[in-house]
């Protein structure tokens, strides 16, 4: 009913399977409710009223990794935390993406020392790096837009792998 009447007005839409799926994936990419340090506060700002990440279908943070599509590593990754992050990542179902938010998560930042892993990419594969200490919410949104662009470019042949 609703669908057919709408379709009647719009005519027929044709698309490829890839585009339809990728559109769906970018439209509701739920992040994991996971914050580490200072960047997590900026991530919260991004989700709160002023910057409002729900514009991109990301208002819902899932506390369980089983229900999340995206993990935003927001903050410094310590040697003690590293195995935990790996396990969280392993628990997430495919397809999954990783945004490394901030200098500390991307390369160790100012903490070139014994306690900090020099980049979360030593533990989990990262799709998008966001620079800044901490990045502004606009920067994080830009990082997520970049990720969306990447997802939209995925091909059906890649999914098989």
């Amino acid at each position: 009913m609703g669908v057919s009447s709408k379709l009647g007005n719009l005519g027929v839409v044709t698309t490829t399977l890839e585009e339809a799926v990728n559109w769906g994936r970018t439209g509701a990419m739920w992040p994991l409710l996971f914050g580490l340090a200072c960047c997590a506060i900026e991530m919260m700002s991004t989700q709160a009223s002023h910057y409002d990440m729900s514009r991109f279908g990301m208002e819902l943070n899932r506390a369980s990794p089983r229900q999340a599509d995206l993990i935003i590593v927001a903050g410094r990754v310590t040697r003690k935390m590293a195995p935990v992050i790996r396990q969280l990542y392993d628990q997430m179902p495919h397809p999954k993406w990783v945004v490394s938010m901030g200098d500390c998560a991307s390369c160790g930042g100012v903490y070139n020392n014994y306690a900090i892993v020099q980049g979360v990419d030593e533990i989990i594969p990262v799709d998008v790096y966001v620079a800044g200490c901490p990045p502004r919410p606009e920067q994080l949104i830009h990082g997520i837009m970049t990720l969306h662009e990447k997802v939209r470019g995925e091909r059906i042949t890649d999914w098989a792998n």
Binding site: C107, Y114, D121, I124
Partner: peptide, 27 residues
């Protein structure tokens, strides 16, 4: 007497060399 744990900082002149040895995670 415990070292700070300093890793070589990456600049453009030594970036490739460091990237070769960096233990990137696998899927």
């Amino acid at each position: 007497d415990y070292p700070l744990g300093y890793e070589t900082v990456q600049f453009s002149f030594n970036a490739e060399d460091i990237m070769k040895h960096k233990p990137f995670a696998k899927e």
